[in-house]
Amino acid sequence: MSWYRIVQLVTAAAVLARPGLAQTTATDTTFAVDPGGHLDANGFEYASVTIRGWDRDSIRIRATHASAIRLEIKSNRRVVELREHRPPMAAMERVTLELTVPRAMTLEVIANELDLSASGSRSSVAVSTNGGSIHLHDIDGAITARGTQVTVQLDSTRGNAGLRTTNGTITVTNHTGDLTAETVAGDVRAEGIDAGRVTLTSHAGAVEYQGTIKPQGLYQFGSQRGDLTLYLPSTAGATISTGSVRGRVEVSGPASVTVPEPGKRGTIILGDGSAQLEAVTFSGRIHIIVAP
């Protein structure tokens, strides 16, 4: 199926030649798309991408990059593909993209080095990178963010979120929807969470959670050597399975509870115990703080 129509790359391009510096190409193009379509920005070596949602049936693409790099834009209205063609001499050149997309458009961005900021989307967002930063704000849709050495930050987001980074910190603020945040070396901090299923794990870093504990919810928190700090609401009803091999378990709150023996796993019941909560470490401290 021959479904691609090549969009003219430059409708208002300007080649800026400045003495002593590499030539730069600027692109600014807008064209109609299906509002529920898909944006696929893939294969970028080094990019800075800003995505905003708007209430129009069109996409605006503004790009700035070294002239040695060729930016390719393809669209069949349903799918918009962005690619770069980069010669070796331009290996370290950054491509800067500013995309304004229909809010219902699903987004996928894959790059080697990426600084991404996206906001205003009402659809799913998927991001994958080796290094950089991912910042998602005011997103209403499924979120997937994967990285090797990348910091991930979500705020004011809604929808199920799966976040994973090898080395990097994950911070989630004011999120509604199931949440999984995993890292090996970084910290995980989740605050203002409204979710029935939460998994926050790190291997070497600290894990912190503040949010709801819904009836029949499932909450898992773990770190090998980092501390776990859980701020639970006063109305929390949970059966907490917790223990640390070398660390310590503490519970702070208005009610008297019994904590497990050091090195052992034990159970703490809060309220009606309907939610299932697990908090385990090897050598980190576990501190469960129940609001008054």
């Binding site: 070497a204 050597r225 980092g226 501390d227 640390s244 070398r246 660390g247 310590r248 378990v249 503490e250 519970v251 702070s252 709150g253 208005p254 009610a255 008297s256 509870v257 019994t258 904590v259 497990p260 023996e261 034990g266 050598s283 980190g284 401290r285 501190h287 703080i289």
Partner: peptide, 21 residues
């Protein structure tokens, strides 16, 4: 099983983590 010391104390150091770095 022992009872915890219910308090809001913080700043207690981690239990014996290894400093891998």
């Amino acid at each position: 099983m022992r009872h915890s010391n219910i308090s809001a104390t913080r700043g207690i150091s981690r239990g014996a983590p290894d400093d891998l770095s």
